[in-house]
């Protein structure tokens, strides 16, 4: 792994010194803490680091106003971040010539990859990014319960939510400039941190991820209240894959699961 990190630092320094990018988004590690860091000088590349605990999804920064104007840039990208980059690209949020990935994962460093090359790298080394078995077991356990039991479980969990929206800030898929939860004419989702407002927010957040979530876990990691958000996300991803064969973030120009259609779609259930 240390060789991989060395190569990644060297590539970051090279890109910056050549002027190929203006900014590198990466991680630095201090003790037990992992911070996202933003590097604009080649000399700073030595600070870059990466390990399995780097759970912030750096792709989430690409649509923030502070970063948006600083293209071209490079992103230190774990496989999950790579998938998020491809989702953002298919939703026309980032352009191919503006973002490059310093692709790194458990199997080593993949080099400087353009968005067009990410799919091939992912398919070769990480073709089946599925959630950890422990999470899948918990999803199965919860799915086995009755609808009433599940509703009770989630009602209890959602009660903890303080509506800080850290999950939203951490998610690369949540790039709307005005989130639906902030709409107040009319107000569909109550903004009070309680009861049905919480329920509506959490469920709508999860549904907005259906067919788009890449399973990076940044939302759950960001939640100060410890809500098991990945339970919802993983279940939706399972459904999206099993029912529609959707695996977001493997193609540069994938059609979205929700909101794309073809005349050949199964319509037999409509009658």
């Amino acid at each position: 792994m240390s060789g991989a990190i060395g190569a990644m630092r060297a590539d970051a320094a090279k890109l910056l010194s050549e002027g190929a990018v203006k900014l590198v988004l990466g991680y630095c590690v201090r003790g037990n803490e992992r911070y996202p860091c933003f590097i604009s000088e080649a000399a700073q590349a030595e600070a870059l680091d990466f390990d399995q605990s780097c759970r912030q999804n750096l792709a989430a920064y690409l649509r923030k106003p502070e970063v948006r104007g600083r293209a071209p840039l490079a992103v230190v990208s774990s496989p999950a971040v790579c998938r998020s980059l491809l989702v953002l690209s298919s939703e026309s949020q980032i352009r191919e010539n503006e973002v490059r990935a310093l692709a790194i994962g458990p199997k080593g460093y993949g080099g400087i990859l353009g968005l067009g090359a990410l799919g091939a790298w992912l398919k070769a080394d990480y073709p089946d990014l599925v959630p950890e078995q422990a999470l899948l077991d918990r999803v199965a356990e919860l799915s086995a319960k009755t609808a009433q039991e599940r509703a009770k479980f989630w009602m209890k969990e959602f009660e903890k939510c303080t509506r800080c929206y850290a999950c939203r800030a951490a998610c690369p898929g949540c790039y709307c400039e005005r989130c639906i939860v902030e709409k107040n004419m009319p107000q569909w989702i109550s903004s009070a941190a309680a009861g049905h407002g919480n329920y509506a927010w959490e469920v709508i957040r999860a549904f907005h991820q259906a067919g788009r979530c890449t399973g990076c876990g940044a939302c759950e990691a960001a939640c100060p209240q410890g809500l098991p958000l990945m339970l919802l996300n993983a279940r939706l991803s399972q459904d999206a894959f099993e029912e529609f064969g959707s695996r977001p973030g493997y193609e540069l120009e994938a059609k979205p699961l929700i909101g794309s259609w073809s005349a050949e779609d199964d319509g037999s259930f409509i009658r």
């Binding site: 939703e91 026309s92 949020q93 790039y175 709307c176 400039e177 005005r178 059609k255 979205p256 929700i258 909101g259 794309s260 259609w261």
Partner: peptide
């Protein structure tokens, strides 16, 4: 003013 151009509607419009 609010559209972020995710193109969901463009894909979905029959």
């Amino acid at each position: 003013n609010l559209c972020v151009h995710c193109r969901a509607c463009i894909n979905a419009c029959p």
